[in-house]
Structures are given as C-alpha cells and as structure tokens.
C-alpha cells in the first residue's frame, strides 16, 4: 500500500525512494544473536537486581516489599560510606603511582636502549597473568612479620616493620595491585608509542631535538589517548577492589580488614554471610551508578583535553 501512495505517478522513480519510510530490519537480522545474549546476560540481571533491591527478606516474616527502604538505609549506612571513602582514597593515591610507573617503563622500553628487551617486556607483564588470588596469597606470605620476607628485612635492618597492621594495610594492598597491573598498563602505553612513525623522530633529530625533547614533544602527547583508557580501567578496577583484601582477611589480625573494607566486600558479606542479598543488590546498583559517574566525568575531561 505504501508503495503506491509514495510512488504515485512516478513509475521510474529510484527504488531507494520506495523504502524511505520503512524501517530497515536487515541490520537486526545480523544483530539478534548478539542482542538476545546481551539482553539475557546483561540487561535482565541488572533489572532483576533492581527488582530485588525493593524487597527485604527476613528470618522472621519472610520476604516483604520494602519500597525504597534499602536505599534509605544505604544512605545512612556509615559502614558503606567508610568503605567508599577507602576505595576513593585508594584510587587517588594508587592509580597515579601505578600509571606513572607504567608510563616510565613504556618509555624506557621504547627508548630501545635496554638490553634484553623481550625478557623485560615479558617479566613486567607476568604479574598480570598470575591470578589475583594467588598473588594476594603470595604477598601475604611475603608480608609476614614473623617468618615472611618482611621479617628477614626487619632482621637485616634492625627495624620492626609490620605491614599487616591496620595503619599500613591499604598501602600493602596498593603495592600488590600496583605489582599486578603495572605491566598491563605499560603494555597499553607501549603499544601506542610503537604507532609513532620513525620518520617523526628522524625529522625531530634533524631539527636538533634532544632525546628529552623527543619524549616531551612527541611521545608524551601520544600517550595521552591511552592514558584516558588506562585511567578509566584503573578507576573501575579500584572501586571494585575485592580479591586482594578478601584473601588477606584471613591472614591478618583483628579488625585490620573488616567485612566492609571495600564496597564490593561489604556487598558480598551482606549477601552471603548476612542473608541480606536485597540490601546488597541496592548497594551494587548505587555503586555501579557512582562508578559510572566518575568514569564518565574522567572520560569527558580527557576528551576535552584531547580536543585542545
């Protein structure tokens, strides 16, 4: 019907014109296998979590609809905000240190002045291939103040350093995470450095630029693009901090690592130890929103910078 109306008397009109108002489903034919999986493994679970977060399930009285009560409780939950502040502090300190280290390593690799480059590249990347649980355990043994490597260090230097105490725990975890992810980020940086054409260096050299100027004027600007990616990955990663503290928890005394040490640990413990998965769902959603806002803000900023 549409055909006759639009085409009217123009019998020889271009065929593309005929379909102008018709939705083109051809793309969706290719899309649907992905879309189905995406909806079921991504959209549906999120919606289910949102749905769950409106209920409360109690040992006495069963499950009841609670409206926004879980969210209200969350905003007044000092433990949640403590854990959020902790990962925020962690992010602000650990991420810059790690990324600076990664950038330095990438520049060092790219300078082509190192011997055994391949070995260097592989060995800095290796920690990333070690499962986080294993590396947390390993570092736990190293940190041992009585029999670990820290103990040997103390013996040697005559100090009484105890890394597994509440005051130094976050630094100790930061060290583990830095060790794990520096190589990974280094590789991203290094990849973007290798895309710089050699002719650019040659031109710079002819213009009389020194090594340091090449780094500053050519290499550093090139790193900016990958910096945005690594920053966002790192922020998301640190806000989701879980493996390292939860493995170390059983190795440290007292309240050094609490059940609400990070938001993720808090949600996990509420859900699996306290039977409060509804409240944990509310927390997960709020955390996702917070992380998204922060990541988005960072991305906007870095995009604006790149435009400049």
């Amino acid at each position: 019907m549409v055909k006759t109306e639009t085409s009217g008397g123009e019998v020889l009109g271009p065929p593309a014109n005929l379909n102008r108002h018709r939705v083109d489903w051809r793309g969706w034919k290719f899309m649907w296998p992905f879309a189905v999986v995406f909806v079921f493994v991504f959209i549906v679970p999120i919606l289910y979590a949102v749905y769950e977060s409106f209920f409360q399930s109690r040992m006495v009285g069963g499950t009841v609809f609670a409206g926004l009560a879980n969210y209200r409780r969350l905003f007044g939950d000092a433990q949640f905000w403590t854990s959020l502040r902790r990962v925020a502090l962690f992010t602000v300190v650990q991420v810059p240190i790690m990324l600076a280290l990664s950038a330095l390593l990438a520049l060092a690799l790219d300078s082509l002045r190192l011997h055994g480059m391949k070995f260097f590249r592989v060995s800095t990347f290796m920690p990333y291939a070690v499962p986080a649980v294993v590396s947390a355990l390993m570092w736990g043994f190293i940190y041992g103040a009585k029999y670990g490597m820290v103990a040997s260090l103390n013996d040697w230097l005559g100090t009484s350093l105890d890394v597994l105490s509440p005051n130094t725990m976050l630094v100790a975890i930061g060290n583990i995470v830095t060790w794990e992810f520096t190589g990974y980020n280094m590789l991203i940086f290094y990849a973007s450095l290798t895309t710089i054409p050699h002719s650019l260096y040659e031109a710079a050299a002819i213009d009389g630029a020194g090594e340091w100027q090449i780094v500053r004027r050519i290499k550093m600007p090139e790193l900016r693009g990958s910096l945005a990616i690594t920053v966002i990955f790192s922020i998301i990663g640190s806000f989701q901090l879980f493996n390292e503290p939860s493995v170390l928890q059983s190795m440290v005394p007292g309240n050094t690592i609490t059940t609400y040490y990070t938001p993720n640990m808090y949600a996990y413990n509420l859900s699996f130890m306290g039977g409060q998965s509804n409240y944990a769902a509310a927390m997960a959603i709020v955390m996702a929103a917070i992380t998204m806002v922060i990541a988005y803000a960072v991305q906007l900023r870095s995009m604006r910078e790149q435009m400049r």
């Binding site: 040992m59 105490s165 509440p166 005394p253 007292g254 309240n255 050094t256 609490t258 059940t259 609400y260 413990n269 130890m273 306290g274 039977g275």
Partner: peptide, 22 residues
C-alpha cells in the same frame, strides 16, 4: 544465636579492634 554465622563474621569488625590496640 539464631544467626550465629553472621554474628561470628562481624566479630572481627567490632571486637577485633581490641586486638590491634584500637
């Protein structure tokens, strides 16, 4: 307690501070 598992889980958070001198 009828929720002893949870109770023991959060003992470290609260009473645990006595063992680190807090």
């Amino acid at each position: 307690l009828p929720f002893e598992i949870y109770a023991r889980g959060i003992y470290g958070d609260t009473a645990g501070a006595a063992f680190t001198g807090k």
